[in-house]
Amino acid sequence: MKSYNNRRGLTFPIIILVLGLVWIWSSRLTALQPEDSPIEAPQSGFNLPQFKLITASGETFDTSFATGKPLIINFWASWCPPCRAEMPDFQKAFQEFTETDLVIAAVNATNQDSMTDVLAFIDSNQLSFPILLDQTGSLTRTYNVYSLPTTFFIDRDGRITKVLVGGPIPLALLRVEINNLLQD
C-alpha cells in the first residue's frame, strides 16, 4: 500500500498556487486593452483600414465620409452564388434602416469579375447603396479577403466589431448586427 504524506502533499500545491498568483500579478503589467490600439487591421477590435474607391456610378467613396456612422462593407463578386443570394437582403436592410445613419458599401472584386455582369446584377436587383469597384484587387488584399463574400461591421468609432466570412448572410442576422451597431 502506498502511504501518503500530508505535509508533503500540501507544499507542492501551495507553491503552484502562489506561483500562479505571482504570474497573474506580473502579467497585468503587459495586459493591453484592445481599444487602445491605433493599428488599422481587417480584424475585429482594430481600426478600419481607410480607403477611397470609385463607385459603379462614377462617384468617389471615401471611408472618411462614414466617420461617426455605423458602416457595413461587403466584398462580393457577380459569379459568387452566396454573394448573389445575400445581396437582395442587403438591399432590404438598406431600405429598412434608411432613416438611420447606417452606411452600406459593397466592394466588388472587379479584378476577378466582369463589369457587364456587375452592372447587370446591380440593375436586376435595383441596388441603391454604393457599389465600389476594386479594379486592381488591392483593397481585397488589404482586407485579407480569402473568400467571397466577406462582410465587415464597423462601429461609429471606426472600429471593426465583427467579420463574417462566407454567406449568404440571412436578413435576420443583418438586422441583429445593424441594431448592435446602431445601439453603440
Binding site: 500562479g20 504570474w23 497573474i24 497585468r28 503587459t30 495586459a31 493591453l32 486593452q33 484592445p34 477590435g45
Partner: peptide
Amino acid sequence: LFLSRFQENGIVFPGGFRVDQIFYW
C-alpha cells in the same frame, strides 16, 4: 495560465488583471 500572458486581447478586470488567467487559476 502560463501562455495566456503572451496573448494580447481579452477581457480584463480593473487593474489590468486578466479574466482568463483568474479562471485558469
